[in-house]
Design a protein around this nucleic acid. Structure first.
Length: 314
DNA sequence: ATCGTCCAGATCTGAAGCCA
DNA sequence: TGGCTTCAGATCTGGACGAT
């Protein structure tokens, strides 16, 4: 450990990342199945090797220093690369279907993913990693190499922000489509008989808000709700269940596949007065080579999009 | 090439003490 | 009182080396 950076133990990176996550050496040690003094010593050794303080110790736990935060960012990237190298070892001599993507909570994307997975070859090894998160985290995760692909969903009001953000992170993007958000509600909703609903009619109903749809969180900006009755919910199926069971509810969303609308007895409606345009981008690292599985997924993504794109604005 | 032994270094645990 | 550090002693691990 005393030979400088070359002999740094990457296991210690894992320790440091866990300490940062738990904000406690005791908790981190417990999670890592090791003794607390040992972890404390390992962190100290790592700090000595680097010549920086990674954490500030307080009676309420440990907190990363400015330099420590910078180090932890690098450490996380290295751990991701190590994980990828290890997965190469696992799949050696065997065909393994590897695929990873970070996605927003759009139902047409969820639909596409389940369709894609259902067509995998189940006699071969499968290593699929799908995570739902907000668009800012999706960009960071793809830039860090945690996911090979990402789908970013944002309002066109933030177009320039995302263009700059992707350029800063050296990521490539491809527009999947540009569309207007629609209202989705129970077919029994009292206003469901109107094909183009007025803003005034919406104000008396209960709005279900899917928080991560309204990214970016930049400056805390999100779509302004007209309704004083709001329910914020993250879980997709629960949102549809609620829309189905309480006819006085509605939700803004990207177009929902017909199959799901039928299953939950829901309908789409427009609200020209309030609707705004959104864009979904497929993102990946500059120079990333698409695997056969990636291409298969992209085909599925476009056909899922085509099946719901009855209202499209390019 | 394989096996057994030795040994240094790494890692572990528990106890004691420090600090806010 | 809770959380972290330091210390001493025990245990584990892996490399070196000789015997077969």
């Amino acid at each position: 450990m005393s030979e400088g950076c070359i002999s740094m133990n990457t296991l210690y990176f894992k320790y440091a990342v866990e300490v940062e996550r738990t904000r406690s050496i005791t908790k981190a040690a417990s999670n890592l199945y090791m003794a607390q003094p040992n972890l404390s010593k390992a962190i100290k050794e790592l700090e000595d090797t680097l010549g920086i303080d990674i954490f500030e110790r307080t009676s309420k736990g440990v907190f990363p220093t400015v330099k420590g935060r910078e180090f932890l960012e690098y450490a996380k990237k290295i751990l991701i690369q190590i994980e990828k190298m290890e997965s190469l070892k696992i799949s050696r001599n065997r065909i393994c279907q590897n695929f990873s993507i970070a996605v927003p909570g759009s139902s047409y994307i969820s639909f596409c993913i389940s369709d894609f997975i259902s067509e995998l070859n189940f006699s071969q090894d499968i290593n699929i990693n799908v995570e739902r998160m907000n668009s800012v985290d999706i960009v960071n995760s793809v830039a860090d190499g945690k996911y090979n692909l990402g789908i970013v969903h944002y309002s066109l009001d933030y177009e320039s922000y995302f263009t700059d953000f992707l350029r800063d992170k050296n990521l490539c993007s491809e527009t999947v489509w540009t569309f207007e958000h629609l209202l989705v509600m129970s077919e029994k909703n009292p206003i469901a008989e109107d094909s183009d609903i007025s803003a005034e009619k919406l104000s008396g109903l209960i709005e279900i808000i899917q928080d991560d749809m309204y990214v970016p969180y930049i400056n805390g900006i999100s779509r302004k709700s007209l309704s004083s009755k709001r329910i914020t919910m993250h879980e997709r199926d629960s949102q549809f269940e609620l829309l189905c069971r309480i006819p006085d509810t509605f939700m803004w969303t990207s177009p929902v596949p017909e199959d799901i609308l039928r299953r939950f007895k829901l309908v789409h409606r427009k609200c020209s007065q309030l609707s705004s345009k959104y864009r979904d981008l497929l993102i990946f690292q500059n120079g990333y080579k698409f695997s056969e599985l990636d291409r298969k997924f992209v085909d599925k993504l476009y056909s899922a999009k085509n099946s719901v794109s009855f209202v499209e604005y390019m």
